[in-house]
C-alpha cells in the first residue's frame, strides 16, 4: 500500500494533464464541425482560423469547449473515452462471451503476447549464451560484442519489413515466426549486456579464492559467476521483455498483419478511428506493465530464496 501512493499520485497528475490537453488539441476540429452545424464563430471561416492560436480560439469560442470533450473522432480523446472504448472491446465482449472475437482486444493482445513470449524466450536464450561465450572467450569478446552493439543501431522499423519479406520468401507462412524473430532481436541485447556484466561481477579476490581450491573453470562458473549474475539477469529481463513487446508490435505494423495490437494501431490509423488506436496503445502499455511486474515478483522471490534480499 505504501508503494501505491506515489504511483497513484503520478497517475492522477498524468490524467489531469491529459484531460487539460484535450481542449486545445481538439478545438480546431470541433469548431469546424460546429461551423458546419450552423454555429456563429470567431473568426468565422476555417481559413481565417488557421491564423489564430488555439488559445485565443478557445477564449473567443468558449461555448464550444464542451464539444472538444465529446467528439466522435477526436485528435486526442479524453481518458474517459479511451477507457470506455477499452472496456467495450475487452471486458464487455468477454462478458458477452466474445472475448476471442476478431474485434476484441483480448484476442489481439493474446496474439501479441504469444509472439512476445516466444521472442522473449529466444532473445533471453541467445543473450545468455552470447554472454557466456563473451566472458569465456577473448576472441568472441572481440568479434561478437561490436556486432551486438551495431545490431542495435539499425532502426528496427527498417529491419522489420525485411525480416518479414525474407521469412515469407523462405516459405514461412505463419506471421508469428518473423514477429518472434524481430522481438528476439530487440530483446537479446539488454540480456546480453546485463549477463556479461553479471558474469564478470565477482571480485578478483573471489576468483583467487577458487583458484586456491584448484576449482575447475566449470565449478567457478556454476558456484560463483552464475549465482553472482542473477540480480543482473533479472534487471535485464525486465528491460528485455518490454523490448520484446515493442519488437512484436513493430513486427505487426507492416501491411499484411491483421491481428495483434500493432495491427489494430495500423488499422485504426487507416480507418481514421483514433479511439481504436488509443485503446490498443493503452492495452499494450497494460500488457507491458503486467509482464514487467510479474518479472519483478519473480526477482524478489528468487533473490529472497537465494538469501540475497531480506
Amino acid at each position: 500500500m505504501r508503494n501505491a501512493l506515489p504511483v497513484l499520485t503520478v497517475l492522477i497528475a498524468i490524467l489531469a494533464i491529459w484531460y487539460v490537453a484535450v481542449a486545445p488539441m481538439n478545438i480546431r476540429v470541433a469548431l469546424d464541425q460546429a461551423q458546419r452545424a450552423g454555429a456563429v464563430l470567431q473568426p468565422e471561416t476555417a481559413l481565417e482560423r488557421q491564423e489564430v492560436s488555439v488559445w485565443s480560439l478557445m477564449l473567443r469560442n468558449s461555448a464550444q469547449i464542451g464539444q472538444t470533450y465529446a467528439m466522435e473522432r477526436p485528435r486526442l480523446p479524453t481518458p474517459g473515452q479511451v477507457a470506455t472504448e477499452l472496456w467495450s472491446t475487452t471486458g464487455e465482449m468477454a462478458l458477452n462471451g466474445r472475448a476471442m472475437s476478431k474485434r476484441s482486444l483480448i484476442y489481439h493482445g493474446w496474439i501479441t503476447l504469444q509472439s512476445t513470449l516466444w521472442g522473449f524466450a529466444l532473445g533471453t536464450a541467445l543473450g545468455i549464451l552470447g554472454a557466456v561465450a563473451i566472458v569465456y572467450s577473448r576472441v568472441v569478446n572481440m568479434s561478437l560484442m561490436p556486432w551486438a552493439i551495431i545490431s542495435q543501431t539499425v532502426p528496427i522499423v527498417a529491419l522489420a519489413p525485411m525480416i518479414i519479406v525474407v521469412s515469407s520468401q523462405l516459405g514461412i507462412q505463419d506471421r508469428a515466426v518473423p514477429k518472434a524473430i524481430i522481438s528476439a532481436y530487440l530483446c537479446y541485447f539488454p540480456v546480453l549486456v546485463g549477463m556479461v556484466k553479471g558474469l564478470r561481477s565477482p571480485a578478483h579476490a573471489q576468483l583467487d579464492l577458487l583458484k586456491t581450491y584448484n576449482a575447475s573453470g566449470f565449478q567457478a562458473f556454476l558456484k560463483l559467476r552464475l549465482p553472482a549474475s542473477v540480480p543482473y539477469l533479472f534487471t535485464s529481463l525486465k528491460v528485455g521483455i518490454a523490448a520484446a513487446l515493442v519488437g512484436t508490435i513493430v513486427g505487426e505494423l507492416p501491411t499484411g498483419a491483421i491481428s495483434g495490437l500493432g495491427a489494430r494501431i495500423l488499422i485504426g490509423d487507416q480507418f481514421g478511428t483514433p479511439l481504436a488506436i488509443w485503446a490498443a496503445l493503452v492495452a499494450a502499455a497494460v500488457l507491458a506493465g503486467v509482464l514487467v511486474t510479474l518479472l519483478d515478483i519473480a526477482q524478489r522471490v528468487t533473490l529472497r530464496r537465494m538469501g540475497m534480499a531480506p
Binding site: A205, Q219, K223, P227, V230, M306
Partner: peptide, 25 residues
C-alpha cells in the same frame, strides 16, 4: 588454505554453505 584480507563470503550462501564451498569443490 588461504584467508584473505577481506572475508569475501558469498552473499547467496549461508555461513554453513560458505564453509561447505571448498568441500564441495
Amino acid at each position: 588454505g588461504y584467508v584473505f584480507q577481506a572475508a569475501g563470503l558469498y552473499p547467496w550462501r549461508t555461513i554453513g554453505g560458505n564453509i561447505r564451498l571448498p568441500l564441495e569443490i
